[in-house]
Design a protein around this nucleic acid. Structure first.
Length: 300
DNA sequence: CTGGCAATAT
DNA sequence: CATATTGCCA
């Protein structure tokens, strides 16, 4: 139930929110303005009523809600799965049919997901952070977590990743977990440097600070990822075609392999080097850094 | 409050 | 079937 002030239409923001969450919304206002009522209904509200409602109105309201819920459920059942193009907006009209709140993990969406996961790195790709990096309006943490869980089933454990915990000999004891723990690092760990390639980590001094025209989407899309790192635009003079430079950016997990590496460290592409990443076996001599390098942070 | 996972629900 | 939710634990 949302009380809307005619003088201040902020209440409608809440209405939108609630409607998009597939909630039956009742809009109330002190004056029974028909125009306001029309707006409310058109916005997907279930009912508009004057505030305060009478005792009887309140008393029987549940009947309408029950009816509404049941009809909705029936409609959903009868309908073949509503396909959500990319996100479900939940804009039911009229009778209040809303598509089922079910995200379709399109290739596109999954790509975003994977990009975020790769950036965060194995072992520190928390649903909340993934969600922020993905920057998909309407997507929830739970959905990301669910998808993450699903994906992890398919992710082959690298060598030594999962320990096979033996079942507790005594069922009454807690014992170790049945399953291994997905590698995770504590939040806020300091940027780490590749132990073997310390000297290689320095950013070359011949950096052209001109601004790039190819700001990555991740930077475009979200201004408050809280992500700290360096964006660079990399070109490799010895490499005209767009294949990678035989160099990989790795996370600082001790498990370092191709699967965990970034594959878009290609010529001319923007690359994010988070502070907690390091280069491994990067051939700096053959890399020419141009465009810009910019530290950025939450405030940017 | 958040995350991981299995089990279960939708 | 693909996702979402729940329950339990950390």
């Amino acid at each position: 139930m949302v009380a809307v002030q005619p003088s201040n239409l902020d209440g409608f923001k809440l209405v939108h929110e609630a409607v998009s969450l597939n909630l039956p919304v009742i809009v109330m206002s002190t004056n029974a303005d028909p125009i306001l009522a029309k707006c409310a209904i058109e916005d997907g509200a279930f009912l508009f009523m004057q505030n305060p409602p009478s005792h009887d109105e309140l008393k029987y309201l549940w009947q309408h809600l029950l009816r509404e819920t049941t009809t909705r459920k029936n409609k959903e059942k009868g309908k073949s799965r509503v396909e959500n193009s990319s996100m479900n907006k939940g804009i039911g009209q009229g009778s209040g049919i809303k598509p089922k709140m079910c995200t379709e993990w399109t290739l596109e969406l999954h790509e975003k997901f994977m990009t975020a996961v790769k950036i965060l790195g194995e072992g520190r790709c928390f649903p909340k952070d993934i969600l922020e990096l993905m920057n998909v309006p309407g997507l929830t943490r739970m959905q990301v977590a669910s998808h993450l869980q699903k994906c992890r089933h398919g992710w082959q454990p690298s060598e030594g990743r999962r320990q096979k915990a033996p079942k507790p000999s005594n069922p009454n004891q807690k014992g170790p977990k049945k399953y291994g723990i997905f590698p995770r690092l504590a939040r806020g760990t300091q940027p780490q440097i590749h132990p073997q390639n310390d000297q290689n980590v320095e950013i070359p001094s011949n950096i052209n600070m001109e601004s790039s025209t190819m700001m990555p989407d991740l930077l475009h899309g979200s201004q408050n990822t809280g992500f700290q790192g360096i964006w660079v635009d990399v070109t490799c003079p010895n490499n005209n075609n767009n294949n990678n430079m035989n160099n990989e950016i790795f996370s600082n997990e001790n498990v370092v392999n191709k699967e965990n590496s970034f594959d878009y460290a290609a010529a001319g592409e923007d690359v994010l080097i988070p502070n907690n990443f390091y280069f491994n076996e990067f051939d700096w001599d053959n890399v020419f850094w141009n465009s810009w390098v910019s530290n950025f942070s939450k405030e940017l």
